[in-house]
Design a protein around this nucleic acid. Structure first.
Lengths: 180, 180
DNA sequence: CCTATTTTCTATCTCTAGATAGACAAGGCT
DNA sequence: AGCCTTGTCTATCTAGAGATAGAAAATAGG
């Protein structure tokens, strides 16, 4: 595994738990067995690191979604895949969504990162809109996409906080049942 | 206004935007025109400050909720009040919920604060369960309460991020319509 | 094998963080 | 007046942050 990958892994682990400001170059250095100045070689500014991380997270998320919907046909199947991808992020990594956390910290972050997180949400919404039933009015599609996104993000946050992943399932199941 | 109130106001303003780690004693000192050592006089450790802040936020939230539901009778009326209280926190303060943000930052915070935030969520859920229709099965009440809480928190985060408070209204209206 | 590039290192800077000790000031109470 | 409590100040400590310069090592390509 390349050094940049190791760095991003360590940064993702830490950032998805404590947030942007809870991660330091020295932490990442010790996680990856190099010196903090070497971390700066790969990512000169913290902003660079953060941006690269959101970019990787975002494209991995979209890849997962594409993979899990390869054979999906109905809206229901697509939504179950959406739920499953997010659930995996929560359960396997035992952490909430990187963009959910960075989105909450919003104003405390460099502008480039804020915008990249916003892009992640926009992509989410566009995807959701694209897989909702054709006979659903456009405005309702948009509303539903926003509700699903917000609901899933909130569900991760709540489940993590209550230390009970069943809460995520309960909430998202209810959302999927009611929305369709 | 007392110094401690001024301090909590300044801390709340900053913390609801950038998160726990984005607030420093020196920031608060300059916000309130005193020296940082004087801030330590009122709140010896940052943890003390954070805890006092969550406590004040939490009780103000519950007070608002009580006030707005004084004449409420139906579940619908109670839920509209819940929505309105959170909306006011979003629109008037132009910031997301303190506990939503601290909840997301979870693992990066002192334990006492984590637990106090968790208590805020528990109180929210208990309140929601208490105002849901009597004929709704207990399990469904709990699920619905969780969905409403997560949905509202997610809606704040998303609306703030997209810089469009209408998103909050759209999402929460849809939730209230579908859930009842 | 030698050179050029990439990567890591040592060493260090500056700034800010949280935190503390102890002097000093203002006000009420007896 | 003298005292005690409350609050603020100056001054300072230690730790850690992000960041940089320049030497040294590793690696790749001809």
């Amino acid at each position: 595994m390349s050094t940049t990958e190791k760095l991003l892994d360590a940064a993702e682990y830490r950032m998805r738990r404590g947030g942007y400001n809870s991660v330091s170059f020295r932490d990442l250095a010790s996680d990856t067995q190099i010196k903090s100045s070497s971390v700066h070689y790969h990512y000169p500014k913290k902003e660079d690191l953060g941006l690269a991380l959101v970019e990787r997270y975002s494209s991995q998320f979209n890849d997962e979604l594409a993979k899990k919907t390869k054979t999906a046909k109905t809206t229901q199947e697509h939504l179950r895949a959406y739920q499953a991808v997010i659930r995996a992020a929560l359960v396997e990594d035992d952490a909430i969504c990187l963009c959910g956390l960075l989105g909450a910290e919003g104003a405390g972050l460099p502008n480039v990162i804020q915008h990249r997180v916003q892009q992640f949400f926009n992509e989410n919404i566009n995807w959701l809109v694209s897989i909702l039933p054709n006979d659903m009015p456009k405005a309702e599609k948009l509303a539903t996409a926003n509700t699903l996104l917000a609901g899933h993000q909130g569900a991760m946050m709540l489940a993590k906080n209550m230390q009970d992943n069943k809460i995520f399932d309960t909430i998202t199941n209810q959302l999927l049942e009611q929305v369709i």
